[in-house]
């Protein structure tokens, strides 16, 4: 069982919890389990069934885009974080 840390911007989708539990050996598996338990969170961070490109996923504070993406391994003592990006630009 891994811990998923929920930032303030997403807490209303998990009943106000700061952390929730999820099961899975990879980021993809953890997200599947997490979204099954918390459909409101899924609706907030996915776009047409895929994780929104505007949402960062971290394992132990490291962005998984700099590791193995959704295939990044997750251990039982690891902490996963979902955090909407802050991005944009004048064009």
């Amino acid at each position: 069982m891994s811990t998923v840390r929920i930032p303030p911007v997403l807490r209303e989708t998990v009943g106000g919890a700061r952390t929730v539990d999820a099961v899975g050996a990879t980021v993809a598996a953890v997200l599947d389990d997490l979204f099954a338990r918390h459909p409101a969170l899924r609706d907030r961070v996915t776009d047409e069934g895929q994780l929104s490109r505007f949402v960062n996923v971290y394992v132990n504070d490291r962005d998984v885009r700099y590791r193995e993406g959704l295939d990044t391994p997750v251990g039982p003592d690891d902490t996963v974080i979902l955090l909407p990006a802050m991005a944009g630009g004048s064009r």
Binding site: R5, P7, N56, I81, A85, M86, A87, G89, S90, R91
Partner: peptide, 17 residues
């Protein structure tokens, strides 16, 4: 970039929490 921004993911997670 002069035309785009994205808060660096390490800064974002550190400062958010």
């Amino acid at each position: 970039s002069p035309l785009r921004y994205s808060v660096h993911p390490e800064d974002l997670v550190r400062i958010t929490f």
